[in-house]
Design a protein around this nucleic acid. Structure first.
Length: 281
DNA sequence: CTCCAGGTTCCGG
DNA sequence: CCGGAACATGGA
């Protein structure tokens, strides 16, 4: 397929890679379209800084270019809804995000549209994150737990976080204090890792599953948000009442298989984009 | 103006 | 375990 990933100066080649879908599907929120390419950071470094340093490997790691998409697709169920989502999203990859950045952005995601989450992410980065130069442009890393832990709740509310300010602050302080160790979470099995993440304020099952999927490579993690719930209810439980959250969880885990998280993200992106198109009609 | 957005937490059946 | 309500903010 196409070679993509232009941080304005450099390209990375890979087959079966749709960079735009990967960056626009609502898994990561800070990349910005610039001309024909995208500008953003991979952890603490600008995408171009990485390549200049001769570490293209880091970009390949971040964008998960090693994920065997053909094999993953082969595990998807063959129903029409899944087929349509696959056709729409083919080449979209689940990136490997830095754990704290992922946990924190999804703490701020509750009851927010994707555009709002991105706005909050940019404000936090600009105000409290480490600044990096890139050709006269400036980029900002996501602020560390320690940097946020030093702040006041009012500082965060001033970034339009609303009630989420208390949660982000509390989570940052727990991690800065060593009460929760994200490095240790990586070594736990799925259930234990989920439970450990849920100790953080503002992290419930859905946010924990996003973190497991987008930062901890748990390909079975299946976040159920309002969009996915709508898909599940309308496509897989048509005109059925009393379908409980527990039932949706159990169905998803059994039906979508070992790469359920990938299936979930494809269904999510497809549902959101097609819904927007319908609305504009 | 009303409705809704990648939810979590707490509270009463 | 389940459904409801409170919790902030901004775009459609």
């Amino acid at each position: 397929m196409t070679a993509l990933c232009r941080g304005r100066t450099v390209a990375i080649r890979a087959p079966d890679f749709d960079l735009a879908a990967t960056l626009e599907c609502g898994q990561v929120f800070h990349w910005r379209k610039e001309g024909a390419g995208w500008l953003g950071m991979i952890g603490a470094q600008s995408a171009r800084g990485l390549v200049n340093a001769g570490a293209e490997a880091a970009a390949r790691e971040y964008f998960a270019l090693d994920h065997p998409l053909a094999e993953i697709y082969a595990t998807f169920p063959g129903d029409p809804a899944m087929a349509a989502a696959l056709a729409f999203c083919r080449g979209m990859r689940l990136v490997r995000q830095p754990a704290w950045e992922c946990v924190a952005t999804f703490i701020t995601s509750s009851m927010k549209q994707v555009a709002h989450i991105a706005q909050i992410s940019h404000t936090l980065r600009r105000r409290f994150g480490a600044r990096v130069e890139l050709d006269g442009r400036e980029l900002f890393a996501y602020p560390s737990p320690e940097a946020i832990a030093r702040l006041d709740e009012a500082d965060l509310r001033a970034c339009a976080l609303g009630y989420r300010a208390k949660n982000l602050l509390g989570a940052a302080r727990m991690i800065a204090a060593g009460e929760v160790d994200l490095g240790a979470v990586a070594k736990l099995d799925d259930a234990a890792a989920r439970a450990e993440l849920c100790r953080l304020p503002g992290v419930g099952e859905k946010v924990a599953n996003c973190a497991l999927l987008f930062a901890f490579e748990r390909m079975r993690a299946f976040p159920i948000d309002v969009w996915i719930e709508r898909v599940l209810r309308t496509i897989y439980f048509p005109r059925k009442r009393n379908v409980t959250p527990r039932r949706l969880r159990e169905f998803s885990a059994a039906y979508f298989g070992p790469f359920g998280g990938y299936a979930q993200q494809y269904l999510f992106h497809h549902a959101r984009k097609t819904a927007k198109r319908e609305r504009n009609r």
